[in-house]
Design a protein around this nucleic acid. Structure first.
Lengths: 206, 206
DNA sequence: TGTACATCAGTGAACGCGCGTTCACTGATGTAC
DNA sequence: TGTACATCAGTGAACGCGCGTTCACTGATGTAC
């Protein structure tokens, strides 16, 4: 299932991976697009599970610990499943039309860090506020509205989740496209750990 | 030159953009690979210029101002040249073999924020240190070694440049692949500004 | 100034290749009597 | 238990299409005498 080549997701490549000939795939999927949709859905499912598992390794009271575990797992999973990560979060593929059902899976994945930080905020374990920053009311509204599932979250929780996600996706993306190659060499895990730690401190998560 | 479609960088598409037929391109480039290399090189050149211009808008003593200007320009440029940004920093394209000469251009681009933060550090305008963090000596060495051009930079300057770059690439990448669509809507610039500001404060840049 | 020729950007048709897709068919497994 | 038939996963050959590339050719621009 896991491949190594770039986005060379040809039917032939997939079939070879499974030890079958190309037309055999048509017994399971009506067209290439559906096959890829299935691969993406599958990736979201196992990725979300990996994140939840990492979270549940740490007792629910230890918010900072859960945060670390969660985001380190994010990076580690992506590094060991590069193809699948790019399938979910990479730029759109040549002939592929995104299926609308995938959106929900993406939301459920985003929900994991969101709920985690929401729990921490509820317990008063996040000291970050927007004090001293210029937060437009329009953005605040936007952050409080349309949380993935319908429930509303405090703006700062949503904001911090977005920031964390953005950063971890940034590292992951640069790592997978080998942009750190000349600079960090094989020390990128270290880099992620350090930065996670710095983030935890900077928002006063404990 | 600027296109809109995904990585549908066919010769036909490029030729159409220029109002020519496909084989006309072979008068200027021996093969598709060279054409794309040229496009990437061109992107790096104009992108680097845009960053330098943004930096030079602000007097050289105002480090925080330069930092803001630089990183906001990064995001703005990418948003208005999505295709070119993905060409430089997206995942590798189907049939394209990266040219080795591009590496130098990438380094020169990275140099812009690096030199900026180095100047700030030299003036004592960055209060961040690794105190309180567990920085392995191996990573420290790695950070001080192999700076793009040969000169060596303090580990914390290199580190902070990497962090900033990682974050700004993260936002950019998620914005370009429309992953903020349901959450930030058209407020993503605001989000970037806020986060740049938070970063400036968190490392005590002034 | 005018003619003859060279240069060269760009065209249209054609090729080979890979990929997604279809289809008739094989061969094994399972079920009915 | 044994034969006859249905089911169905998988195959091999073939198709159409798009794309990168080649090539002979056109038509305009510029230069030599």
């Amino acid at each position: 299932m896991a491949e190594k080549g770039a986005s060379s997701l040809s039917l032939g490549a997939i079939a070879r991976e499974l030890g079958v000939t190309t037309p055999a795939l048509y017994r399971y999927f009506p067209a290439r697009n559906d096959l890829i949709t299935a691969l993406i859905s599958d990736s979201y499912a196992t990725f979300t599970e990996a994140l939840e598992a990492a979270r549940d390794c740490i007792p629910s009271g230890d918010h900072a610990g859960r945060f670390r575990s969660l985001f380190l797992a994010y990076f580690a999973w992506a590094v060991s499943h590069p193809q699948q990560y790019l399938l979910m979060f990479g730029s759109s593929m040549p002939g592929y039309q995104l299926d609308s059902a995938v959106g929900e899976l993406a939301d459920r994945c985003f929900q994991v860090p969101l709920d985690m930080l929401a729990a921490a905020a509820r317990d008063g374990k996040i000291s970050f506020t927007f004090e001293g920053f210029h937060l437009s009311s329009k953005l605040q509204e936007q952050l409080e509205r349309i949380p993935p599932n319908g429930r509303s979250y405090p703006a700062r929780v949503m904001y911090l989740t977005l920031v964390s996600w953005t950063f971890i996706h940034g590292v992951t993306s640069l790592e997978l496209t080998q942009r750190y190659a000349g600079i960090l060499a094989d020390q990128s895990d270290q880099f992620v750990e350090l930065e996670v730690e710095r983030f935890v401190k900077s928002i006063g998560l404990n």
